[in-house]
Design a protein around this nucleic acid. Structure first.
Lengths: 145, 145
DNA sequence: CTGGCTGCAAAACTTTTGCAGATTG
DNA sequence: CAATCTGCAAAAGTTTTGCAGCCAG
């Protein structure tokens, strides 16, 4: 089911601002926060109220259309969410992020942590930080700055 | 090496506000953000400028004395950091958090992700959310609200 | 003593709220 | 058309900056 259908089924309208924001999110490679989205759209000549950006992101997030990503510097951004668990790896140089699949590998760890801490684990947050292929190549090519 | 020595070696002074804040952090069970720390200390009759709290936390974090914790609702708080990698499990009911050890179990996963994404992994963020023993007991006792 | 540190005030920035008017279904 | 949605304005909340005076080493 595409997001427009999902939105409609949940009783929401397909407005122009929502279309614009989703279109941007769909192509986003880096985590975007509300003000960044507002700024980028404005640079493209699309002027939305900041408030609408906040409200739209809140809605999309509640509907599970986008995920929150925690950046190494503590800021929080959004990225489009595919289904299932959402784990991202973020490039520390260019911020480009991609999703990777699978929390299957974590079952053992979850077991161990439950035994060790006596907490009952119900969810987890897992992100990796590193270098994307492009930035690795740049560094190897000698762009060592 | 204790934090006071570490602070001194790094060329910083051991001021009263810093002592107060570290004393609070050392006993913190839940992630605390700057304003919360300011509020708690004020409730204890200790009045610091909000600014000092921000600057002190920034310093402690830079020195690795405290860690950032990402809460399920997207807010960021601080907790004391023991050494090595800092992984926390946070209670979704009372926010109490404890550290758990070991990223050894993640080696395989890191390998797989590196192959899958072609990113070079250098760091990771791993947190669990769940129920602490106390909150589990409360729920079982019938406090099902 | 003296350079770093605190805390005030104020500015800058981010996020939320209330409401009139535009827009979607 | 009617209810939802947008966007402005303004408020509320958070974080940063500048600076005078204080204090740890």
């Amino acid at each position: 089911m595409d997001w427009q259908t999902l939105l409609a089924k949940a009783g929401y309208r397909l407005s122009e601002p929502r279309k614009r924001i989703m279109k941007l999110m769909e192509t986003a490679e880096k985590p975007l926060n509300p003000l960044a989205i507002h700024r980028i759209l404005r640079e493209q000549g699309i002027h939305l109220g900041v408030v609408s950006v906040y409200r739209t992101l809140e809605l999309f997030f509640a509907l599970g259309l986008i995920s929150q990503v925690f950046q190494a510097d503590g800021l929080v951004g959004y990225l489009p969410a595919s289904f299932g668990h959402h784990h991202f790896i973020v490039c520390q140089k260019c911020q480009k992020a991609v999703e990777f699949s699978g929390s299957e590998d974590m079952r053992e760890l979850v077991q161990r942590v439950q035994t060790e801490t006596r907490y009952q684990v119900s969810d987890h947050l897992l992100q990796f930080y590193g270098l994307c292929p492009e930035c690795q190549a740049l560094l190897e090519a000698g762009g060592n700055s």
